[in-house]
């Protein structure tokens, strides 16, 4: 913490079309885009707030809701689906005690569903803050998540 929204956005403000990079940078810091940050981004990039809001809500990697420290994304695209993604999802949900789309009460994990992450040589795949975990089985989940305790 410590950096202001403006400081986070600053490196991208002169980049044409850099608003998406700015959103990425904000998310890296907060794991979501806080309302005040979005307003600040709109101001710096000189676009209406409604438009900035429209951009942020278009892309699934951006969230305008508060999320956990670690974002677990479960791929449910067809190749992961036939490799048993449903079972992995159920196991994740029961291990974390939350449903897809929710955040654990301690604010540590957010579980999301996603489409193909391009690691299809080793299905099913999950990513944790962007890092892929391959060939995931229900049994492996405690061990994988223990790295993030």
């Amino acid at each position: 913490m410590g950096k202001s929204f403006e400081e986070i956005i600053a490196p991208f403000k002169d980049k044409k079309g850099g608003i998406i990079e700015a959103f990425h940078a904000l998310q890296k810091e907060y794991n979501f885009i806080p309302q005040e940050a979005l307003k600040e981004t709109a101001r710096i990039f000189r676009i209406p707030e409604a438009e900035a809001y429209g951009i942020a809500t278009f892309y699934t990697h951006f969230s305008i809701e508060k999320r956990g420290k670690y974002i677990i994304r479960m791929c449910e695209s067809a190749p992961c689906h036939v490799a048993g993604a449903d079972k992995v999802l159920k196991a994740l949900e029961s291990y974390l005690g939350i449903k897809a789309g929710e955040t654990t009460p301690d604010g540590k994990f957010t579980l999301e569903l996603c489409e193909c992450v391009g690691q299809c040589q080793a299905t099913p795949v999950i990513t944790i803050n962007g890092e892929p975990e391959l060939n995931v089985t229900p049994e492996k989940i405690p061990q994988i998540l223990s790295k993030y305790e």
Binding site: L38, K39, P48, E49, A50, E51, A52, Y53, G54
Partner: peptide
């Protein structure tokens, strides 16, 4: 006035002010 824009995508796309507020709180 740029008060409204599109929010979300796909079937969930909807016309919206920034942060879903009422028109009187928008531009």
């Amino acid at each position: 006035a740029f008060a409204i824009n599109l929010k979300n995508r796909g079937h969930e796309v909807v016309i919206s002010t920034a942060f879903d507020g009422g028109l009187k709180d928008s531009t």
